[in-house]
């Protein structure tokens, strides 16, 4: 019954957390790259979208399933670990002064909740188009593809949508600044170092992802995408 013992232990849960998190990182990097095609003009992005839903549909579904499972597990573990952490200190200190813990590490939980909200909203927005602030549902482009590009541009002309995305991306960056580093440690990979708290790679990943995504709404605001 080692699997059960593993699942019950906090280390086991952290490992699941880390693996699903890393899957997430992999996805966002790819997705980010896909989005940046927007700067290559509407035909490129729409064609990309069409390709995903067309020829690569089966692949897409596999990816979707992996992602859904990952997110569900990730959130479930996050919830359970947070509960356990809370239970471990029934009475808080009158005074507590964090010394070295980063803002990122301290916002994993609420930031995570925001990310969850974002993801749900985001899929309803761009994928299923049930949420349609720009009124772009079902529109096609000149090439007859779903006009993803137009939806993006139109949506980011709406101030609160843009704001929400930008804020969400900030939290994503924070989430990864801690997560990309801690996940490796959770999995037990850490080169002994005089400064265990330093994290260069995580910093790069966080900035790349944050910037890469944020460029799109910024591009729209700057009028580069229209």
């Amino acid at each position: 019954m080692w699997l059960l013992a593993f699942y019950r232990s906090t280390i086991g849960k952290k490992v699941i957390m880390a693996v699903t998190g890393l899957i997430g990182i992999g996805f966002v990097l790819v997705h980010m790259a896909g989005n940046l095609q927007a700067f290559a003009g509407w035909p490129k992005l729409n064609a990309y979208g069409a390709m995903l839903h067309g020829p690569l549909n089966e692949l897409l579904w596999i990816v979707r399933i992996v992602l859904i499972v990952a997110v569900v597990l990730h959130v479930l573990m996050a919830w359970q670990l947070t509960r356990r952490a809370g239970a471990a200190r029934p009475r808080e200190y009158r005074e507590r002064r964090p010394q070295v813990s980063t803002l990122a590490s301290r916002t994993m939980r609420w930031g995570g909740v925001l990310l969850l909200v974002f993801i749900v909203f985001h899929i309803l927005h761009f994928t299923t188009e049930q949420v349609d602030p720009a009124g772009w549902r079902g529109r096609l482009d000149a090439a007859g593809h779903r006009d993803v590009y137009g939806n993006v541009v139109a949506s980011f002309h709406i101030w609160w949508v843009t704001l929400f995305y930008i804020v969400a991306m900030i939290f994503l960056g924070l989430h990864l600044y801690h997560g990309a580093w801690s996940s490796m440690r959770s999995l037990g990979y850490a080169k002994a170092s005089p400064h265990p708290l330093h994290r260069r790679i995580a910093l790069v990943i966080a900035i790349v992802v944050w910037l890469g995504f944020t460029l799109v709404p910024l591009g729209v605001l700057a009028g580069l995408l229209r």
Binding site: T10, K13, K14, R84, A88, P98, S186, L197
Partner: peptide
């Protein structure tokens, strides 16, 4: 509780024990 890698423990430790040991613990445990 679980370890979320806040790193406060290492800072508070009077003997400078490094959180690298926690990575080693996870490694052995897995």
């Amino acid at each position: 509780g679980p370890c979320s890698w806040f790193g406060e423990c290492q800072e508070a430790c009077p003997k400078d024990i490094s959180i690298d040991t926690i990575a080693r613990m996870n490694h052995d445990f897995v």
